[in-house]
């Protein structure tokens, strides 16, 4: 590319504007979490930490936060375990229905969450499983499994298959090969996928909405509070969540990035 032409300049301007647009709401959220006025409007009136104090001393919010962490932890654990197994099965073997299996596992990633939520709600009703946090955990784990499968499979495909043959030739049993050869290769992909699953489960609404019983998770709490009205307290919770998710994302990008070939 040589000197930028008029249309490329216009394009660059538009691109930077779009990039700014992506951060506008996040900036607004953070600014107003520190503004000492109950209404979210300019001009800013002063600095305060009251909204943070308010949410940290609200037992309802703390319970919801705990529920969210509980759900996200177990949903991640489940989807990592089963997702990794699925990725290994897909990587090493051909079996009838392989394409159907892959498509079904990946479907919830492009399907609006509410369809998955409704399907599971119908299913749970039929088998008599009550709506509860356990139901939510199973729902999240199932919906997020596709992420684990795609990330781990992408890493497996890059692995040198001769390592597995060498390990078998040297007399290692399959489980031994898995723990000593395969797992170290895919460990960072698994951890990256785990962080992603955790973040997405922590933030999930539609599946949770249909599957939860009386216990609410943090997003459901915020969602139902917001239908009634806005409080800057939500901005404070939001800013805290943003800070944590950015941290997790930076970690996961570092883990999911391909390591340079040795």
């Amino acid at each position: 590319m040589r000197k930028l032409l008029w249309w490329q300049k216009g394009l660059s301007g538009l691109a930077l504007a779009v990039l700014g647009f992506l951060y506008l709401p996040i900036v607004v959220l953070i600014i107003f979490s520190f503004n000492d006025s109950p209404v979210i409007s300019f001009p800013l009136s002063g600095f305060t930490l009251d909204w943070y104090r308010a949410f940290l001393s609200n037992p309802e919010i703390l319970t919801a936060l705990w529920n969210s962490l509980y759900v996200a932890f177990f949903a991640t654990l489940l989807s990592i375990t089963i997702g990794t197994m699925a990725a290994l099965a897909l990587y090493r073997h051909d079996f009838p229905g392989k394409r159907l299996f892959t498509n079904v596992i990946l479907l919830p990633l492009s399907l609006p969450g509410l369809v998955t939520g409704i399907a599971m709600l119908n299913f749970y009703k039929q088998i008599g499983l009550p709506q509860s946090l356990t139901a939510v955990i199973i729902g999240h784990a199932t919906a997020l499994m596709g992420i684990v499968v795609s990330q781990v499979l992408a890493r497996l495909v890059k692995m040198n298959p001769r390592f597995l043959e060498a390990s078998a030739d040297l007399g290692a049993r399959p489980l031994e090969t898995f723990f000593r050869v395969t797992l170290p290769e895919i460990r960072s992909a698994i951890m990256g996928a785990a962080l992603l699953c955790f973040t997405l489960s922590f933030d999930e609404i539609p599946v949770t909405y249909f599957l939860t019983g009386r216990d609410v998770t943090l997003p459901i709490f915020i969602y139902s509070t917001l239908r009634r009205g806005i409080t800057p307290e939500i901005n404070a919770i939001g800013t805290a969540i943003v800070a944590v998710s950015v941290l997790l994302i930076i970690l996961s990008v570092g883990l999911l990035r391909d390591r340079p070939k040795k």
Binding site: L22, I26, V39, F42, Y223, G238, S245, I249
Partner: peptide, 23 residues
């Protein structure tokens, strides 16, 4: 990064931006 920052909160913030007495 914004993609993985709470989708609910990013949606909600538009409510506070666009409202009659909003930002």
């Amino acid at each position: 990064v914004p993609l993985w920052v709470s989708y609910l909160l990013r949606t909600y913030t538009w409510k506070t931006i666009l409202g009659t007495d909003g930002a």
